[in-house]
Amino acid sequence: MSFPLIDVSKIDSPDDQLAIAKKVTEACQQWGFLLIKGHQIPPSEIEEMFSLGKAFFSLPEEQKSQYPINEDEIGYMGSFKDRGKDDKMSMWFGGLPGAIKNTPGLHPFWYEQAEKVEAFKHKCHSLVVKMLVCFALAMELPDKDFFANAHLENAGKGNSLRMLMYPARGEQPQTGGSRMAQHTDSGSVTLLFQKQAGLEVLSPNGDWIKAPCIEDCILVNLGDALSFWSGTHLKATLHRVTFDGLPHDQERQTMAYFGSAHPDTVLQPIMAGKTMGKYHSNGFDIEPGITVGQLNAMIMKSIYKAPEPAPVPLPAQIFV
């Protein structure tokens, strides 16, 4: 099987949307990953975000580390700070629209850039919603917005953009970690912007392969929430970055946008009369009735030792 590459430039066209939806969904059934081109996020804006990230990561570590991630998932995390002691730096931009500039303790570098980051997040969210509509169409759900309606941009805790830097070093760190430990994502749809290849994906035949890095293409993968919700009609796939695939003396810069449903969304698998077996991921068995927030907290705590979130009142409408 060749790694799927799909042109989505006509995803808004009524005459082409269903055909694109079927191609995208088939790729996500087989691989859980695909490359998309014609995605309508301007290359110049992607490059500007990469340039900002590069400038920030080049600042002294002792300066960046003074502004750690807060409860809204906005802030910095240095290398070796997660449970797996992975060698990657990350700048997180979570929260609802407008939250970045209003965050106490944000690194001063980002205050003047906050509106650009927010605008980029908005474009990413719009693309995620289009992908979610594709899945509903291809699955022949009665409402094409079934998944999309649970992913409102201004609801819940918002979606997250994460700038990542795998630094080049003179020698491999002796921490016992990797560049990024193998895992599946917890949310719905992840958009990965790459400057260099390096991510390894577990292929349908069980082999680890390096995901392609093609100019002006976005690497897309699905998370456990959407996979479970779809009754495993859609696939969440293990992925990783190793020192074999990305040696210690090579730098790699990426950006990942994590599209997630409202944390109070209740996940009841869509099974069409069938029974789904055990869903096991990231060391957990996932059961029907779990909320998106509970699932995310479990996985984030496993990877990052993140604290459990405080309970929040249920909204007037719950998506099932």
Rank of each mutant, 00 (worst) to 15 (best):
P173Y: 01
F135Y: 13
K123P: 02
G177C: 04
K101A: 10
V201A: 14
K195D: 07
F147D: 07
S203V: 10
H125Y: 02
G95R: 00
A119G: 15
G206H: 08
A138Y: 05
E112F: 11
N102T: 11
R169E: 09
P167G: 11
R169S: 10
P212H: 15
K123D: 07
K210R: 14
V128T: 04
Q174W: 00
C134R: 01
K130I: 05
G198K: 07
L202V: 07
S188F: 04
K144H: 14
G198H: 12
A136Y: 00
G156M: 10
V189G: 11
Q194E: 14
W208K: 11
E112P: 09
R179V: 00
K121R: 11
V117Y: 12
K121D: 00
M180Q: 09
D145K: 08
F146G: 01
H122F: 12
T190A: 08
Q174G: 00
P212S: 15
K116N: 13
S160Y: 03
F147V: 06
G187W: 10
S178P: 01
A119W: 13
C134Q: 03
N149P: 01
G206E: 05
A119I: 11
Y111V: 15
S186T: 15
E171W: 06
L202Q: 09
S186K: 15
C124P: 10
S160A: 09
Y166R: 05
A136S: 02
A99M: 05
P142Y: 02
N159K: 03
H151T: 04
A211C: 15
Q196A: 14
A181D: 12
A114M: 02
E153S: 14
W208R: 13
P212T: 15
F193V: 02
G156K: 12
M139W: 00
L161F: 00
K116Y: 05
K130S: 11
Q196N: 13
P204Y: 09
L127M: 08
P212G: 13
A181V: 08
L161S: 07
A168P: 00
R162P: 10
L164V: 07
G177H: 02
G94L: 00
V189S: 06
D143R: 11
A181L: 01
F147K: 03
S126L: 07
R169C: 05
A119Y: 13
S188T: 12
R162F: 09
A211Y: 15
F146K: 08
H151W: 10
F147N: 11
P97M: 01
L191F: 04
K157Q: 15
L96D: 07
P108D: 13
L202D: 02
F109C: 13
D185T: 12
K157Y: 14
Q196P: 13
W208N: 13
G158I: 01
A114R: 08
L141C: 10
Q196T: 14
V201D: 12
Q196G: 12
A168E: 06
